[in-house]
């Protein structure tokens, strides 16, 4: 059976020997992407297209939705995977267009800090939300 490394090298055969980090981030893009197709399209169908779309979204709607653990987990998984997938994709874009070492380090550092901060804020909001203390 072909390993992840084999499949990766079939597509990058130009003599580059990628670090295992490159192989795994490439593989992560495929796995997270596959999961995100279902999570994101489900999210869009529920929140934007059917049942009135964004028109009915407000505090009470979110409070009802986040009453149980299921939608909180769904939303957190979507948050984490989308952010890491997007961050990983942006890293590839930086590698393609930012060639100076200094600027590349700065761009990637900014990206990683932003990813960490936004993942922390998002997680905090989903985990700590308590409608009883906020409904004013």
């Amino acid at each position: 059976m072909a390993t992840v490394q084999d499949v990766y090298e079939r597509h990058f055969p130009s003599g580059i020997s990628p670090s295992s980090w490159e192989v795994w981030s490439w593989f992560f893009m495929r796995i997270s992407g596959l999961l995100l197709v279902f999570l994101v399209l489900g999210h869009l169908a529920i929140m934007h297209v059917f049942g009135g779309g964004v028109e009915r979204v407000n505090f009470d709607f979110v409070a009802a939705r986040w009453h149980g653990i299921f939608w909180r987990s769904y939303d957190w998984l979507l948050l984490a995977l989308a952010l890491l997938h997007g961050s990983s994709g942006t890293r590839t874009v930086i590698h393609d267009y930012v060639h100076r070492d200094g600027w590349r380090v700065l761009a990637k550092a900014t990206l990683y800090v932003a990813t960490f901060v936004f993942l922390s804020v998002g997680t905090l909001v989903i985990v700590t939300f308590d409608p009883a203390t906020l409904a004013h």
Binding site: F59, A82, G86, S87, A114, F118, V121, L124, V125, A135
Partner: peptide
């Protein structure tokens, strides 16, 4: 890149819910 840009905005707008019903 466009969807990631909106995701950043979307995390900020959703975080307003932590400041209360009125803000959100």
């Amino acid at each position: 890149l466009m969807v990631l840009g909106f995701l950043f905005l979307h995390i900020l707008d959703t975080s307003l819910i932590g400041f209360g019903k009125h803000h959100y």
